[in-house]
């Protein structure tokens, strides 16, 4: 009795956060924290690119180096794969297994097409003489930025494809949960989000 009275007299701190301050499971929260840290990694890489770009007296015209309709196609593929991933997440929430599998398969397919396009783009540039610190366009930093930014992003796409393939197998075995699909989806959408920044800041500006 005396103990409960004492507890009533001590007000709960405004900063205690309650039981679940973010209102999500720890798995989903961990994915969000990972996304924040990975986002900071890409922010650092893009800031480094921005510095080199500003400090360079000249910079190649991207439309002369890249075939922009091809880059636009890559962007289209990634945006579409995000929509199919969203469909898979929505289907998982509604326990619609058929659309969940379809959504995951289409997203994996989109990821593979994107990776194929990136491999083609890299091969094409390497055949033109582009290396990490030398290239025919006279600005060594240009290809360093290109290979680092798109390479890091491509490795994330590859990781995403692997994560989604595991999720698909687990779905087919009936072992995945709707939240498992949602967390895999969060990672995939993050990969799409990063591409929005790379596409604008590296290819268009």
């Amino acid at each position: 009795m005396a103990k409960s009275q004492a507890a009533e007299m001590v007000p709960e701190s405004l900063w205690s956060g309650g039981v679940s301050p973010f209102g999500v499971s720890w798995q989903k929260l961990m994915m969000w924290i990972f996304i924040i840290t990975d986002g900071l990694l890409f922010a650092g890489l893009l800031a480094g690119y921005g510095f080199l770009r500003l400090a360079s007296p000249q910079w190649p015209d991207q439309t002369q180096v890249f075939y922009m309709p091809f880059i636009a196609f890559m962007t289209f593929v990634l945006i579409t794969s995000s929509a199919t991933m969203g469909t898979a997440v929505g289907a998982a929430r509604q326990r619609d297994r058929r659309w969940m599998v379809r959504g995951l398969v289409l997203t994996i397919l989109g990821g593979l097409i994107f990776l194929g396009c990136q491999a083609y783009e890299w091969t094409h540039l390497i055949h033109q003489g582009a290396r990490l610190y030398t290239n025919p366009w006279g600005v060594p930093h240009f290809t360093a930025c290109f290979f680092v930014l798109t390479g890091f992003h491509g490795s994330h796409v590859l990781s995403g494809v692997i994560i989604l393939t595991i999720t698909l197998i687990r779905t087919l075995l009936g072992k995945t949960t709707p939240e498992g699909v949602e967390i895999a989806g969060l990672y995939w959408h993050f990969v799409d989000l990063v591409w929005v920044f790379i596409f604008t800041l590296f290819y268009l500006l």
Binding site: P21, F22, G23, V24, W32, L186, H189, D192
Partner: peptide, 20 residues
């Protein structure tokens, strides 16, 4: 658009939105 609709961030609690 991607964070809000695809990642459902706009449907989450304000704490999470602000943190991210």
């Amino acid at each position: 658009f991607i964070a809000g609709n695809f990642m459902h961030l706009r449907f989450e609690r304000l704490n999470l939105i602000v943190t991210v």
